[in-house]
Simulated scan of single mutants.
Amino acid sequence: MITLEKDGQVLRLEDFSLRPLRDHDRPRSGSISHKSQHIPGVSGDWYFGSEIGPKVYSLQANVLEADFEKFNGLMDNLMSFLLDAEGNPALIKVQFDDTNKRFAYLRLNSPIIPDVKSILEKVPLEFVAYDPHEYAESNAYDPAKPLKYDTGNPYGSKSYPNTQSFKWIYSRHYSGLENYSSLNADIKI
């Protein structure tokens, strides 16, 4: 169902002897809070915009491992994968199998408490995306014509010519960058 990637290490839940169930929550937006103010003597409220909060993804996974000791070891491995070196939830790139075009950056949102009271042992997993967007690879929109990050460069190279003979003179000199990409992507320097 999902592929997890952290620091170049790619794993699936099946690697931890877990099989995700299909009944999972994968919201298309985070919680929406509206800002409004009631003004006495006026009908209704005045609307002052809204904010979209983080998205919370949750899923249940069945336990495939019958040996309880091995299962505990696998849960320890899963927790060490989902946490960073300081013990905080790590930023995980999660790719969903139902589409090869979208992924999200998620962090563990709640403790993992396996339900092993019955024969159908389940492990609930809940992740949060503080950046509420899902992303796609750069060639996901039209595989016949992949989009590149420098296609908007009018000079056809990865460097831009200095047309103004600019020289750094002052210690606090500012320069600007413009993203000519056809993708809505951040500029990384």
Rank of each mutant, 00 (worst) to 15 (best):
V123F: 05
G87A: 10
E65L: 04
L183K: 13
E14W: 03
A90E: 07
T99N: 12
Y174A: 12
S43A: 15
E121V: 08
S138R: 10
F81I: 09
P111G: 12
S175V: 14
F81Q: 11
E126Y: 01
S33F: 02
P114W: 12
K70V: 15
S157H: 06
P161V: 09
L11R: 15
N179P: 00
S31Y: 02
N62F: 06
G156Y: 14
N153Q: 06
K158S: 14
A61G: 07
R102M: 10
P111V: 15
F68M: 03
L18P: 08
H24K: 12
P20L: 11
K117R: 15
N100A: 07
L11H: 09
E69Q: 09
P111C: 09
S171M: 01
L74K: 15
S110N: 03
I52L: 00
R19I: 11
D131Q: 02
G176A: 11
F71K: 03
L106R: 05
L59D: 10
K167Q: 13
Q95D: 05
K188L: 09
P114H: 13
I92K: 10
I187Y: 03
L83P: 09
S110A: 12
R172L: 05
E121H: 12
E69S: 08
A104Y: 05
E134N: 06
S29C: 03
A185W: 01
G176N: 07
F166G: 13
H24W: 04
R102N: 08
N77E: 13
P154L: 09
V123Y: 03
K101I: 02
V56S: 05
N77M: 06
